[in-house]
Nucleic acid binder design. Structure first.
Lengths: 250, 250
DNA sequence: GGCGTGTTTTTAGGATCGTAACAACAGCAT
DNA sequence: ATGCTGTTGTTACGATCCTAAAAACACGCC
């Protein structure tokens, strides 16, 4: 079995199929249609297992059964299979989140806990940054060395806040970052103070109003980890520390 | 645990979480945030297991970890969780179908095999009916007793074919069905011949040109099973049989 | 009988579930 | 300081469940 096929099987498994189901489904698409023997010949699925596996695939709506002798199987079209899986996924997601929606604590205003949270992973940090920026009412300080850490969504959120009257200050020692953000209406840019060493590990810094902060670091493998806090005394203290260290000349 | 919660857990399991993962995720949404003990108290997940389960949920991007003593966990917002799962699903689906697309047999024109296929389930029969109707070039005969079996998509396909110059004939002994389809431009309606008994099991009949046919039956539980064939001699023979029996007076 | 088909049962193997034991630590009374 | 109690986080291990894989079986056909 080719590497590509192995990957496809893995992907189908993560979509909820068993490995046999994935293999039979793929084999039938390669064949167009075929019998249990045909399938067993080009896969490592034992022929005697093909029958039950195909039956469960039929129940999922991924193939059709020809009641003849021998039984022939025919996969549904790729488009139909995609839609079927999509429908099933959305259905399950609704069922799952329907309940979570109802019981989920509305923890609005409860943000005053003295909590500092950790977020791992580029995408997840991106999301948290956007969340934080969106909550800004008064002013934003946004800084990063790395142009890749200014996503379109972050840029859009900065623009949106700036036009909403929030004072937005972007800090970066990287020209590309400054140029990109300077072009936004209402966004000011500046270089960080010289006395700050050129830290190779720092990722981003986001300060929102006087009570929200996010700091991230980038490790050797490019993985990003951030800490953040909002509405906590902890956040306020950190913000004051940073303000003091950046405004005071060395 | 309430029935609703059990259902939500099941749904999350079908989305690829383990039951522990689902329970911890839901519990944290009920709590807003909490420690391993908090979670263990309101679920049947052993406290000692909460740590590793939460870790894997963090990797999936469904919650955040506060490195303190005791460790506190905080779920991401419902919206963020929905999006995260959606992204993962689409990613896996692309990976899976990317390969299937490449290897899938283009079985166009290979339809001439003498095959008759079986399709189970209302939705799946709907899909197959639409497929068949869409392939019509010359004429269509569409019949059903049951108004529910004329879906919007089927109606749209009939209208589309009619305007494309295909002769469309709808047959039903049910007034509601006739009225609905008669209103379509270019669709003719009629009553079935009297000598046909009022069969309580028959579901739909679809005849397309001279070589495509689908017949379905509805069982006592409302489940539908259809047989269909296209481009086969088998289909032609069946069609001739039906034409003969409907056009000849008793 | 010999062969192919389809059904059923049985036997690993692996992941998850569930319990338990453990060291480390904090609070508190002796 | 010592001992007791309770909590936290980690680790280990048996039970259970599902899938994978093999085998045995019944049937029809040549």
């Amino acid at each position: 079995m080719s590497t590509d096929e192995t990957e496809a099987v893995d992907a189908f498994e993560r979509l909820g199929l068993t490995s046999y189901e994935a293999k039979v489904f793929i084999a039938l698409h390669r064949l167009g249609s075929g019998t249990a023997r045909d399938v067993a010949r080009i896969t490592d699925v034992p022929r005697s297992q093909v029958y039950s596996v195909a039956e469960s695939l039929e129940e999922r709506g991924l193939l059709e059964v020809q009641q003849s002798n021998p039984i022939r199987y025919r996969p549904v079209s790729v488009e139909e299979a995609r839609e079927t899986l999509e429908k099933r996924f959305e259905h399950e997601r609704e069922r799952a989140f329907d309940y979570v929606d109802r019981v989920s604590e509305e923890s609005v205003g409860e943000e005053t806990q003295e909590d500092i949270w950790t977020v791992r992973g580029r995408d997840r940090v991106d999301d948290r940054v956007v969340d934080l920026l969106s909550s800004a009412e008064d002013r934003i300080v946004f800084g990063t060395r790395l142009p890749a850490l200014v996503t379109d969504e972050i840029e859009a959120t900065l623009r949106n806040r700036a036009t909403a009257g929030v004072s937005v200050l972007a800090v970066s020692r990287t020209g590309a970052v400054r140029e990109r953000l300077e072009s936004l209406e209402g966004v000011e840019c500046e270089l960080p103070p010289d006395h700050h060493g050129d830290d190779q590990r720092s990722g981003r810094i986001v300060i929102v109003d006087d009570d929200g902060i996010l700091l991230s670091v980038v490790d050797d493998d490019g993985g990003e980890t951030a800490i953040w806090s909002s509405g906590s005394r902890f956040a306020s203290v950190l913000i004051q520390l940073i303000r003091a260290s950046t405004q005071t000349p060395a």
